[in-house]
Simulated assay, not measured.
Amino acid sequence: MSTPLEPQLNREFVTGLLEALLTTPSPSGYCMDIMKYIGTETAKLGYSLEITPKGNGIITIPGEKNDKVIGISAHLDTLGGMVRSIKSNGMIRLTPIGGYAMHTVEGEYCLIHTRDGRKYEGTVLSTKASVHVYPDARDWKREEANMEIRIDELVKSKEDVEKLGIAVGDFISWDPRTRIMPNGWVKSRHLDDKASVAALFGLMEWFKREGKSPSNTLKIILSTYEEVGHGSSSIPSDISEFIAIDMGAIGDDLSATEHDVSICAKDSTGPYDYQMTSKLIELAKREKLPHAIDIYPYYGSDASAALRGGNDIRAALIGPGVHASHGMERTHLDAIVNTAALLLAYVLDK
């Protein structure tokens, strides 16, 4: 659907950046490589990236006025795993990073990242992986204790694995299996929340290309621990309004689709700010952006973390609709670009 702002956003730029983000491993706590990439892309747009002690990134865009500072967040960290132990038969037991159902990673290819920089491929399997061997393979519960990683190296013992340099505490990332299709569909792991990061960069590219400024100063926060609950728990003290950009959940009695901007009125941490949420709804209507207002009962965001961290802020949550969250996710480029368009309308509004 054509809107006043959406056609001005550079879809090709957003698409290219999204693909690069999705194919760069970044499980929570292992975001060094993706932050280097973000630093390069930020510099190309003429902005600077400040790295906080925790590893979050902050990009400041000066505004026309100094009435207030608006914080906007999206998270670069994703679901993943860590080596919990090495078994005597050379298999690896994993512990999850982030909240996902174990069956969503069964059969998935992965990378094990050693502390000295080596990478090894593997596959996540049930400990009873073959129906030709185990009569209860189909019913075997997919839980942490019953899952393991088969390494694609010649290993038959714990000692063989240790000789590769693999150790307890090494990070594990999932193969994203990214597909960006000509018809606009995007299917990949980790659209939560790299789709939103791409939308934010679409916003910044627009400001750079048009030579314009937001009404008020923006501080864009790219967090690296959202999936484990404390991504933006501490934010700059001059922020008074805070918008988390994160994926919109789809399913059950929720209204959003993969083409919509999802506006969350309430999640598991409670209702978001009435005035901010109402303004976002009004702007979505004004800009004729496909959108839905929803409630997420099993969801928390960077805005939730910021509020729980004691920050005295008003907060809201929006994002592109994403199907099968924390699994094999899918969205549409329309939802990503329209999320950027709604955010742009908000920060330009006088």
Rank of each mutant, 00 (worst) to 15 (best):
V133D: 08
P7E: 00
R138G: 14
A74D: 01
V131W: 11
N146L: 00
T40H: 06
S240W: 13
V197L: 01
N338F: 04
P135T: 13
G231T: 09
K187I: 15
A292P: 01
R150Q: 13
G319P: 07
I245M: 11
L76W: 03
L5N: 10
I220N: 06
S304Y: 08
G80A: 04
T40A: 09
S188E: 02
T95K: 13
H259D: 06
E287W: 12
M91G: 02
K219F: 07
D238I: 04
G46F: 12
K44F: 11
P25C: 07
K279G: 04
G57D: 08
A195M: 07
E241Q: 12
T114F: 05
A167V: 13
K128P: 06
G98E: 07
W206N: 03
S196Y: 07
I166C: 06
C110H: 03
S26A: 15
I180C: 02
L164K: 03
T178C: 11
G46V: 15
G251D: 01
G300E: 01
G80N: 03
E148R: 08
I61G: 01
A43C: 04
R11Y: 00
G29V: 14
W140Y: 15
I235L: 03
A305N: 02
G81F: 12
S188P: 08
M32C: 05
I245P: 06
P271V: 13
P53G: 03
N183W: 14
H230Y: 15
R142E: 05
M1P: 10
F201S: 04
Y346V: 09
A249L: 11
N10G: 02
E148T: 14
G309N: 01
A303Y: 06
T78W: 03
L283W: 11
A324W: 15
L76G: 06
L333E: 09
G98K: 01
D160M: 00
S85N: 12
V337H: 00
I166T: 10
G117N: 02
L111D: 12
L94R: 03
H332Y: 06
D273R: 03
S325R: 10
I92K: 05
G71P: 04
A335M: 04
V347K: 02
L200S: 01
F171A: 08
N56G: 01
G300K: 10
I172V: 15
D152E: 08
R189V: 11
G229H: 07
V124M: 12
R150M: 13
M204V: 11
D246C: 13
H113L: 04
S173Y: 09
I239R: 09
K163I: 10
L307E: 02
D260N: 12
H190A: 08
Y109E: 12
G55R: 00
G46H: 03
M247D: 01
V261G: 13
R150L: 15
S215Q: 13
H323K: 14
V161S: 01
T224S: 12
P182E: 08
L317M: 06
D152C: 06
V322T: 15
G117C: 02
V124T: 11
G251L: 01
L289D: 11
P320C: 09
Y37A: 04
K54E: 03
